[in-house]
Computed example of a mutant assay.
Amino acid sequence: MDGHGPWEAEGALQLAGQRLALLDSARVYACGITPYDVTHLGHATTFVWVDMLGRALRLLGIEPDICRNVTDVDDVLDDAAARAGTDAEWFAAVGQFQFDTEMNQLNLRSPQHEPRAHRYIPHVVRLARHLLHSGSAYAREGSVYFKGGQVPARAGIDHDRALELAAEYGGRPDDPAKDHPLDVAVWQACGPDRVGWQSPWGRGRPGWHAECVAMSASVFGPAVDVHGGGADLAFPHHAYHAVMAEALTGVAPYARAWFHVGTVTVEGEKMAKSAGNLVLVSDLLAEHPAAAIRMMILDRPWHTCWDYSPELLDTAGARLEELYRAAGRSSGSAAAQQRVRQALAADLDVPTALDIAVDSGGDAARTLVTVLGLT
């Protein structure tokens, strides 16, 4: 047996041109939400694709072990709770409930693990201790900073752009306590105006990247098979997560493959509250079937950015009807089913899989309806 033929799509997945060989399971870490505001289409796109990744893995004979964290310790969450006149923990719980409700309506399967940052404070303290011991971090003025000057080059980001992104994402490059503007807080000193905890360095709170390192390493150990999240988080968040995790464990690479899902824009501008162009999941669900929303998200390459317009839902609805009609036909072949599997194994090529399923009908179409979560 040469390993080719009908079983060639078993146990292997290609992501972004990289073949990922797997045996019986795949560890997938997905950066989750900060539950301080409503869920928009950009969020949903990332999490629908992570759900699709899990479903495709299962079709290929691999059991997905998915961890989707909740960042419920964050400055923006504190600020939103203060504006609402309530405490951050209650505010985060309400936001998480709303998010879970909408993801359930979009037919996402629950992740196997859903760690919440506020439960991992001792883990972040240990992480800071280990990084200090290895010389990868230093303590100053009640904070512990990870030495991150090398991270942009590794991520392929030039210094000036790295500084811009660090400032945009709360990295505080102007913090005078740092040795280097691109060092990041593993543990950040804070006053009584912020939610905080006692530590060996005084009262503070975990840094954003450190939270994910602590949760990922606690759930999966030193490495993951796939790290997923929005492409807009590739730097600084994912880049610092990987380098910090490797500094902790000595195991590299931290992630065998990256699943950076393309961002969603409106008239060419990134969807964001500050831009006033949010397309809310709740509004879409009120007017369109969940299956049509999923089809709109999935009928395209997962890594490409795309521009939302209402007409896309009409196109997705028509495509959905084509697939449903094909699934109702008794025709089809085992060869067509295998071609669907091969298309999904080849970088989750949903458009090609859809073309095959609609043309063949029968079992191939019915299989794809299930794998795309359209039932």
Rank of each mutant, 00 (worst) to 15 (best):
T375F: 12
R256S: 15
L348M: 04
L131R: 10
A92W: 05
A81D: 07
A81R: 09
I356M: 15
R256Y: 11
G149P: 07
A223V: 11
P181Y: 07
R203L: 03
I157R: 07
M271V: 09
A84G: 12
A81H: 09
V224C: 01
R126F: 13
A117R: 03
P35A: 03
E321T: 13
V195E: 12
E321L: 10
D72P: 03
H159C: 02
W302T: 09
A343Y: 11
E164S: 11
P222G: 09
A9N: 11
I157M: 11
Y240M: 00
D307A: 14
V358E: 14
A137I: 04
R27S: 06
A12H: 14
Q98G: 13
V340R: 06
C67N: 02
G268A: 11
L23Y: 14
G171P: 03
L248Y: 07
I62E: 03
G196S: 13
L15K: 09
G204H: 05
Q337H: 14
I157P: 07
N277T: 06
S216Q: 02
L323C: 07
P206D: 04
L313H: 00
S282W: 06
Q105W: 05
G170I: 04
R325V: 14
L127K: 06
E102L: 10
R194S: 12
E322N: 10
I62A: 10
A214M: 02
R119V: 08
C212G: 09
D24A: 10
L106W: 01
W197Q: 11
Y324A: 10
Y254F: 14
P181T: 03
A275C: 08
S110W: 15
V340G: 07
F259N: 03
A117L: 04
V264T: 15
D363S: 15
M296F: 06
E321C: 07
L313D: 00
V369T: 07
L372Y: 03
W208F: 02
Y308V: 04
E102A: 10
R129D: 14
H238C: 02
P152W: 00
E321V: 11
R116G: 03
Q18K: 15
L280D: 02
D314S: 13
F47T: 09
E164M: 09
R203F: 06
P310I: 00
V281H: 02
H40I: 04
C212W: 00
D72T: 02
P351N: 15
V184G: 06
L53I: 07
N107L: 05
V124L: 10
R83H: 11
E102G: 09
G156D: 02
G11E: 15
A365M: 08
G191N: 12
V264P: 11
F91E: 10
V369L: 12
E311Y: 08
W187T: 07
D87F: 14
W187M: 06
I157S: 08
Q150Y: 12
